[in-house]
Design a binder for these strands. Structure first.
Lengths: 233, 233
DNA sequence: TCGTATCCGGAGTACAACCTCCGTATGAGT
DNA sequence: ACTCATACGGAGGTTGTACTCCGGATACGA
């Protein structure tokens, strides 16, 4: 009787593989996405789904009907933000060589985390997300790698820097935002500037060895699990 | 190395305001403290109390009878660790002036956070704790202030450094530990070294302004509330 | 206007953690 | 040995969140 109408999570221009949704259904869908964006931005990805349903003016069952898992909802609600993140990285690649694209990227990325705590959470762990979001993240990673290489070549990034160092900063920044958002809203700016400075200049002593990409990936996947966002598929 | 487990914490050596506890009660009390130390160290301060009772081989009611609130249990279970933290700061004050006591302190403090995730949580938020623990923390803070001043005078700490910067590092380190403990256990070492380097050398550009002590205090108090460790009394 | 495929919402189930009540057991003083 | 204040432990109430079921409402095509 009740089949997964599922439907195009992406854009409405994809060919109608299933019958089109009823207009009330589509309207509710948009309301849920809007509410989810707002609440994830404000409270992070662990916000109770019932709160989202309530803000959308919709029953909890309707939310689950449209987005069977938290993953689906997060993916759909944050595509725009992740796109923004990817675009940021891409645009920093266009910077004139004189400007320090990598540093600008790091600053802005931290700022994005602040503007949207959902994105902040997303960037500090590896949720099992939509293919589309995953693509975006991977694209961003490629851009960042390029930015790193250029910055190293230009001497504005210490040679022993690795991509995992950036992840560590994003994790740290996310935590600092969670703690200080309400009462010390500028704190993250100071801390990230401090760390960015450390990225730029080769230290006096050699750094302890970096975690391998695989280690870091495993850690961030586990963080997502522990944070209750990856329970099921 | 130490493992000094004696120590009746609360009212053992205080005058007989109440009759002495029955031996089975005292034995259970110790078992609970031991279990709590282990579990807090391994899982952080948010560990379920029932798990602690179970490991202690005791009913949940017994745990609540001895420690009416999480705060009481945390205080009692972590006095030793906080003492260690205070002693670390004090000992760093004894360093020969040639050594950089402040940097050594920061390194060791981060290491303490790793060795005991409960202490890690404790240092990255302001729980409403026992007077004794609060005293220890304040004493440590005084030592740290002295260490800061000396280090600045010796030129091994940037002049614009403030105590809140250290708190930010402890918060960041705690988060990184939580994420990487299992699969990238060395990551914190690299990140803290990076940040410590930034502490030591004055940056090229002036730092964004630091949060005020009051702002930081409010933030850390709120973190404790949100993390469910300060709910009641 | 009418029939029905589709959709809705809230009540209901499951589960984990917190915390309390109360009947039972036992250490320790006489 | 006897008594009872003290302590025990688990059952069970409470809350908060995730997730499902199903009777009833409604959009939409005919």
């Amino acid at each position: 009787m009740e089949q997964l109408i599922d439907a195009h999570i992406g854009k409405a221009d994809s060919p109608p593989r299933q019958r089109r949704m009823r207009v009330d259904a589509e309207r509710n869908r948009q309301a849920i996405l809007q509410a989810a964006s707002e609440i994830f931005a404000q409270s992070g990805l662990e916000a109770p789904l019932e709160e989202i349903a309530e803000r959308a003016g919709v029953g909890i069952a309707t939310l689950y009907r449209r987005f069977p898992s938290r993953k689906a909802l997060v993916s759909a609600a944050l595509v725009a933000k992740v796109t923004e993140y990817e675009r940021l990285a891409r645009e920093c690649l266009q910077c004139e060589p004189s400007a320090d694209g990598f540093s600008i990227f790091v600053e802005r990325a931290c700022a994005l985390q602040v503007a949207d705590r959902g994105l902040g959470d997303l960037l500090s762990m590896t949720l099992p997300l939509d293919a589309e979001v995953e693509q975006l993240r991977m694209a961003a990673d490629r851009h960042v790698t390029l930015l790193m290489e250029r910055a190293k070549a230009a001497g504005s990034l210490r040679p022993d820097f690795v991509a995992e160092d950036l992840l560590l900063l994003l994790i740290a920044n996310s935590a600092i935002i969670h703690v200080t958002a309400d009462h010390a809203p500028g704190a993250w700016k100071r801390f990230s500037a401090l760390v960015l400075g450390a990225f730029q200049t080769p230290g006096l002593r050699p750094l302890p060895k970096a975690p391998s990409p695989a280690q870091m990936a495993a850690s961030m996947r586990r963080a997502a699990l522990e944070h209750g966002c990856g329970g099921r598929v």
